[in-house]
């Protein structure tokens, strides 16, 4: 039972990952795209954890979700928000 639930969780995570990746490319508003990209990084961190590499998951959560988002928001604040 637990294995089945884990498989379902993994499938849902990967599905959400694909949806996020497509949405980042489609969204025209830069700030929204950055926020969706942050959620992509967060889901990616959980996927790394599911692939039993907690070290990479920690770096992904800190860099992919935290620092990248902060730097992109800093870049948006220096430029225009709309594409």
């Amino acid at each position: 039972m637990t294995e089945v639930l884990t498989e379902v969780l993994n499938a849902l995570l990967l599905l959400f990952l694909i949806v996020c990746a497509i949405a980042v490319a489609q969204i025209r508003d830069m700030l929204s795209a950055v926020i969706v990209f942050a959620s992509f990084g967060l889901i990616m961190a959980i996927v790394w954890q599911q692939l039993s590499s907690p070290d990479v998951a920690m770096v992904e959560a800190a860099l992919g979700t935290g620092v990248t988002t902060l730097l992109l928001i800093a870049a948006i604040s220096k430029t225009r928000r709309a594409e």
Binding site: P54, D55, A57, M58, V59, A62, L63, G66, V67, L70
Partner: peptide, 14 residues
């Protein structure tokens, strides 16, 4: 434990 200089430094810098 998992983590180390790089992960922790990234969290602190963020």
């Amino acid at each position: 434990s998992p983590g180390g200089g790089f992960s922790g430094g990234a969290i602190f810098g963020a």
